[in-house]
Design a binder for these strands. Structure first.
Ligand SMILES: [Mn+2]
Ligand SMILES: [Mn+2]
Ligand SMILES: [Zn+2]
Ligand SMILES: [Zn+2]
Lengths: 149, 149
DNA sequence: TTATTAATGAGAAAGATTATCATTTGCAAT
DNA sequence: ATTGCAAATGATAATCTTTCTCATTAATAA
């Protein structure tokens, strides 16, 4: 009966600009996504969305992330572990890669123009245009070597 | 009633060397894998294995690829599309990456020592030791530019 | 050959995602 | 403001891949 009030997020505006119908649920999910700076999966997005407006179903979250991804608003990531994870495309930072801490699972973002260029060149020299790079590295925190231990 | 006869494959020997019990099914799956130079998923491995010996179940194929992967005999790949795909670890070629043709889905392997080194350095400079690199690029075949067309 | 222990087969179960369909809602035209 | 209609939603069934269960079978060592 009571509609929650919150401002239109940048993603909600994007949604409109693409000519997508801006439903209450999409507005909520867009808000939640704009508010996130990590890589939530659908379950986590659902939890956050319900906080904002309980009148939402997990099915709609699945539908909406797919829609947003098809429209270039979201990027899907696969860090292993069975569930797809999402982040805003071209949020405040541009293209980037992910380092996963092998022990904690923590995701650390990084950019590297040299890597961008190298991948582009490799693919071009094979006679292709680069469409998508799917890259994540798993690493283990280095134990700082001591003088004597 | 009739046991199919085929030689022990390199992978079957590896299986023994690791102290794993060499069952008929594992011998068959090892044979099929040694005979493959592509990136089959479990369903495809099952089809190939049944050709060699019908007395095999898909459950055992799942179990065996997991076992082989845990023992460093197989590598699991994710090219998108929902199913895990497998290839022999350190077959005739060493570590390599994969380029997926965006239109045909064809998988093209490549090696690149510069890329190896760059990834290693990036991760090291972030304070980590590189454990695993998960990389595949999707590309579209270049249309050769014409002088006039 | 026998005993022991692990592996297998068949199917149930699990986990993630998509499909179905009756109902509701956004939105554009009255 | 109402109306009409296509599109979206909620609830849940279905699908798809992978793992689990458990009674039966088979591999290895004594
Ligand atoms: Mn940078
Ligand atoms: Mn090389
Ligand atoms: Zn990211
Ligand atoms: Zn390969």
């Amino acid at each position: 009966m009571k509609e929650p009030t919150f401002p239109d997020s940048p993603l909600a505006d994007l949604c409109r600009e693409r000519g997508l119908k801006l439903t209450g649920q999409r507005r909520t999910i867009a808000f939640v996504l704009s508010d996130s700076d990590d890589h939530p999966d659908v379950e986590e997005l659902y939890r956050r969305a319900v906080e904002v407006d309980p009148r939402i179903s997990i099915a709609t979250v699945y539908r909406t992330v797919r829609l947003f991804e098809e429209n270039g608003i979201l990027q899907r990531r696969d860090f292993g572990g069975g569930r797809a994870r999402y982040e805003v495309a071209d949020g405040d930072h541009g293209d980037h890669y992910h380092l996963i801490d092998a022990d904690s699972g923590k995701v650390i973002e990084f950019e590297n123009p040299e890597l961008d260029a190298l991948l582009d060149n490799i693919v071009r020299e094979m006679g292709y245009d680069l469409v998508t790079t799917r890259l994540s590295v798993v690493g283990r925190r280095k134990t700082k070597p001591r003088g004597n231990g």
